[in-house]
């Protein structure tokens, strides 16, 4: 590894090390009153990391490739259901199910991509067709017996490393962090590869890229497949964390929104954007809930979400290129 290469990965390694060391700071965070207890921290962080992973997946096709999807639920849900159904119906081990869930998610991504890109759908049209696919999946998952239909699928609670169910919350935190770390590095690899350059070229000007000899269809297909596979892992982890999926959880619009919201807020088409966005958004939501609850009680529902929505608008107003853009401008000065 040359020094230039190392320099490119240094911030990522530092960030991963910092996240990995975060549990050491938990007593301080709890002491400062930021978290009610250590497990409150872990539980929130695990959810943030799962959303980060879903958002990192979205960012590959949406951020680098400019293919805005409103339907990443299709991939998240496939991963979530695969992880649950493979274990409960086919007796597959959780650790074996996870790569299969990832592959199935990728396959769904490739199929939707093939249909959409062959039809030359771009921009809002691509966004809406992905949304429609996610809805079709949701309706089917709610009606077919293999997914448990409307009753959903419950993974039996059997704590043990072999079942990917951990007694210590820190263990799941590190598992989720490992996946996020791999994708952070993967994203940087992508940025520095020829494929990554083509992908950005497609985003900036697809016609020009094609004129220069880039096989744009293949580039986009690879991107959406990879994107879907990463988001499917997020779904599989969700299943392992909560041990229950139904159609609205797995294929619901909520996750499509989370997956695209985090990168846009954090910094679209950047390595750290999804992570920063997920931390900011979910952190903000929790903070609003805690502060409003402490200040006004919980007698009137929804006030914390009103504050959250307003803050969201304000953040966008003051951070044109996402939060990462804000950090960079400040750092540059």
């Amino acid at each position: 590894m040359s020094s230039g290469t190392f320099a490119a990965y240094r911030p990522i390694l530092i960030a991963i090390a910092a996240l990995a060391a975060l549990p050491l700071a938990v007593p301080l965070l709890v002491g400062a009153g930021l978290f009610a207890g250590p497990n409150t921290f872990y539980n929130l962080m695990i959810f943030i990391l799962i959303i980060t992973l879903a958002a990192q997946g979205w960012n590959i096709a949406g951020g680098y490739g400019g293919q805005f999807s409103f339907g990443h639920a299709a991939f998240f849900g496939t991963g979530a259901y695969a992880q649950a159904v493979l274990q409960t119906r086919y007796g597959v081990n959780a650790w074996v199910a996870l790569p299969l869930a990832m592959a199935l998610g990728g396959l769904v991504g490739a199929l939707i991509g093939l249909l959409a890109f062959r039809a030359r759908l771009r921009g809002s049209y691509f966004a809406l067709v992905t949304l429609a696919f996610a809805e079709v999946f949701r309706i089917l998952a709610n009606a077919t017996p293999i997914t448990g239909g409307a009753a959903g699928t419950l993974v039996p609670l059997r704590i043990g490393f072999g079942q990917m169910q951990f007694d210590a919350p820190a263990a799941f935190f590190y598992l989720a962090l490992a996946f996020v770390a791999v994708v952070l590095i993967l994203n940087r690899l992508l940025e520095r590869s020829r494929f990554g350059a083509w992908l950005v070229a497609v985003r900036e000007n697809e016609d020009a890229a094609r004129a220069l000899g880039v096989d744009t269809l293949t580039v986009k297909l690879k991107a959406i497949t990879l994107s879907a596979a990463v988001t499917a892992v997020a779904g599989a982890l969700y299943t392992q964390k909560f041990l229950y999926v139904d159609a609205n959880i797995a294929y619901g619009a909520w996750i499509s929104v989370e997956a695209l919201l985090a990168p846009i807020v954090g910094g679209i088409g950047t390595v750290f954007g999804p992570l920063i966005g997920a931390v900011a958004l979910i952190g903000l939501g929790e903070a609003a809930k805690t502060v409003i609850h402490a200040a006004f009680g919980s007698a009137v529902p929804g006030v914390d979400l009103v504050v959250y929505g307003l803050l969201l608008v304000v953040v966008i107003a003051f951070a044109p290129r996402g939060l990462i853009g804000l950090l960079r401008t400040r750092g540059g000065r």
């Binding site: 978290f35 009610a36 207890g37 497990n39 409150t40 539980n43 929130l44 959810f47 909560f242 229950y244 959880i249 909520w254 929790e286």
Partner: peptide, 14 residues
């Protein structure tokens, strides 16, 4: 949502 529900349980525990 289930995830918000479980997060509240963590807080209640704390």
């Amino acid at each position: 949502s289930p995830e918000a529900g479980s997060q509240e349980v963590e807080k209640m525990h704390a």
